[in-house]
Structures are given as structure tokens and as C-alpha cells.
Design a protein around this nucleic acid. Sequence first.
DNA 1: CTCCTAACCTAGTGAGGATTAGGCAAGCTA
DNA 2: TAGCTTGCCTAATCCTCACTAGGTTAGGAG
Lengths: 202, 202
Amino acid sequence: MPAAARREVIEEAATEVFAARGYARASMEEIARRSDVSAPVLYDHFASKRDLHGRLIERHLAEMRAVWGEHLTGAEPPGERIHRAVDAWFAYVESHPFAWRMVFADTSGDPDVRALHDEIQGQSRRALIPLLEHLEGATGVAGGQDEESLEMAVELLRSAIAGLALWWHDHRDIPRERVVAAVMNALWLGLERTGRGERWRD
Amino acid sequence: MPAAARREVIEEAATEVFAARGYARASMEEIARRSDVSAPVLYDHFASKRDLHGRLIERHLAEMRAVWGEHLTGAEPPGERIHRAVDAWFAYVESHPFAWRMVFADTSGDPDVRALHDEIQGQSRRALIPLLEHLEGATGVAGGQDEESLEMAVELLRSAIAGLALWWHDHRDIPRERVVAAVMNALWLGLERTGRGERWRD
DNA sequence: CTCCTAACCTAGTGAGGATTAGGCAAGCTA
DNA sequence: TAGCTTGCCTAATCCTCACTAGGTTAGGAG
């Protein structure tokens, strides 16, 4: 098999193994086995385990950024914009289950990987800010009038979505629009109104 | 030092190390060093690393359950009840930073620990259900009329709170009531009303 | 036919870290 | 004072990987 093709096979196998086991427990031997080669071959294509992992993260993150980039801005009313972005995100999760898990749900304990994830979470938060900060002009920022409250609202949104995506991973039978509706009901309308029977576009 | 005291020292040190490094990266040698003994002494008190970890989880989880148990039920209106429970939770996080991190934020990649965490998350979700299911009688369950929508609402609440607690860990200067207010604003009132300037008890 | 290179392989090496073997010293107890 | 128990230690052992050394084979170029 030519090098480029083999490399592609390895990247796919590695993404699945990293997603399933996390960085620390992912073994080069398993990645090799799933790529139908022996472990040393991996080192013909990547300098080290960390190099392989790093390149994959970079690649998947670039794809994700492209998806988000299309949906974070726009002239529609905020509710519509948020709905569109959330829907796009869950669509990505649906179609790239391994890439998503590898980037956002790898919980390896390795300090470098942990630092990488902190960095990615920070990027996610910063990326989400424009989605919320213009909810009501300069003053009525979501959750409060200051920077910190905005950050907390963003982190709530981010972690709620990340958590629900993980939950969805174990409940694949539920259609995406219901998951997205759950986010909109709870976070956009709020539990109080949802409890009264109001629904997002019901 | 008598055995009981030594054991207590070890449990405290181990909680901190597990919280800081996660199960997989926590080394028995570091736990021993922080307990002012050599590693073999740990085996006079605990059968193995996993045994030590398991007993600590059990102990901390029991404490947490006691805290939650007091706040999940009650006759107040749902908004008040949720506020009280959320506040109690963040108060626990504030006063037991290591125990909390060890139980909820250890991301070690070890399969047994992962299974344990899945189990704990499931317990958390089930514990939260009574908080939301009576929002509006039998029909107007938060997020939808069926079981699944309730579960999604619960998971959103759970993961949002867990995520914000982690964020708070890096922003200790923010007083607890502001964090709790952020949860109530975003999840109870909803981002739309919050964006309009409404505030939880503002 | 000979040489070269690409793509692989088998068989180590070495480090990190849990766990165990076996012993030593200080204080009781008789 | 002899003997036992408690609390602790040093020095292995052993296992799991990431990574490396050093070949082997197939097929194309000259």
C-alpha cells in the first residue's frame, strides 16, 4: 500500500482508538493492529504518539472551526442564530462521532493532553461569546452586565451542549432535532417557561 | 503514628493527588511522599491503588449524597427549590474542592474508573429528576412531555452545573452567589429573558 | 541480472510505576 | 531481660508500553 493511503488508514484508526480509550490508554499497538500493520510502521509516518495525536487534533479542530465559523455570525434574531449554531454542532457530532469524542471527550489524565483540552475549551468559550454578547445591546448581556457573567453564561452553554452530546452518544435513536429542541427549551426559553408548557417552536 | 491517624493522613493526601492528577497519573509514590511515609506503608492500610481509590470515592460520595438529600425535596415553589439545591451544591464544591474534583472531574482514561464515573453520572441524573419532574404537574415536564425530554433537561442541568463548577475552580475570586445566579438566570429564566434584562431576584 | 528503495517485519531496550520480600527498631508485656 | 507486635524502611520484581535496531521482501530502473 502506498504511503499516503496507509497514512490515511492510520489516521482513521488512530482517531477511533483515541476516541474510545483516551490518549493515555490508547496503545500504539492497537492503532497499528487496526491499520493492518505492525507498530513500527506508525513511526515511518509520525514521529511519536504525541505527534500523531497532535496532528489529528489539529486536523479535526480545523474542520470543526469551519463548521462553527459558518454559523456563529449572521443578521438573524439571536434565537434563530443560536438555534442554527446548535443544530450545526449536533449535526457535526452526528456525522463525525470519533473526531468529536477524540477532541472533546478524551479524558486521559496526561498533563499535556489536559493542557491542550483547556486550551481548546478556552477557544470554544471565546468562539461562543459573539453568540451571546449582542442579545440586548451593550448592557443586557446574558446573565449579567459584566464580562464575568457573560463568561459564565457562555461556559454554561458550552458545557451543557458538550454534556448533552455525550449523553446523546448513548441514546443514538433520538433524532437530532429533539436534542436541539431540548437545548433551546432549557437554555433559551428557560426551565420556568418550559415547565409552564411553552416550547421552542412547538 | 498510630494506624488510624496515619490512615487519615493517607486518605487526605490521596484525595488531593487523585483530584490533581486523575486516577491514572496519580502515583502511589507521590501519595506516600505527601503522607510522610514510603510507598509500601500504603499497602498496610489499603490492598491496592484501586482499593484506596474506591474507598475514597465511596466516602466522598456518601457525604455528597447527604448534602443533596437535604435539598432535593421540599414544598417550596420549584424555582426556590432548584435555587436552594444549586446553592447547596456549589457550597459543597467550595468547601470540599479536592473531594469534588476527585469524584466528578477525574478524567483518567482507566476503564474501571470510567465505568465508575458513568455510574455516578447516572446516579446524579436520577437524583435530579425529582427536581424537575413536578415543574407543572404530570404533563408539562421540563423540555417535553415524555421521559426522554425530561432526561435531556436533567442532563443539561447536570452537565451545565458540572462545567461551571470546573470553570469556577479557575476563577475562585467570584463569590458563590454570583455563580448560582448565573445558573438561575440562564437555566431557569432562560437566555432570552436574561438577554432582555430580566434577572433572577435582581 | 543487479541495485535501490519503499513498505514491512521480528525482537529487543528502557523507563515508569504498582506491588512484594524481607528486615529493623521501638515500645509493650510478662 | 526476652519476645511479640506495630509501624516503617530499602531493595527488588514484574508488567506494560513507547520507541529503536536491524533485517527482509517486492518491484521497478538501469
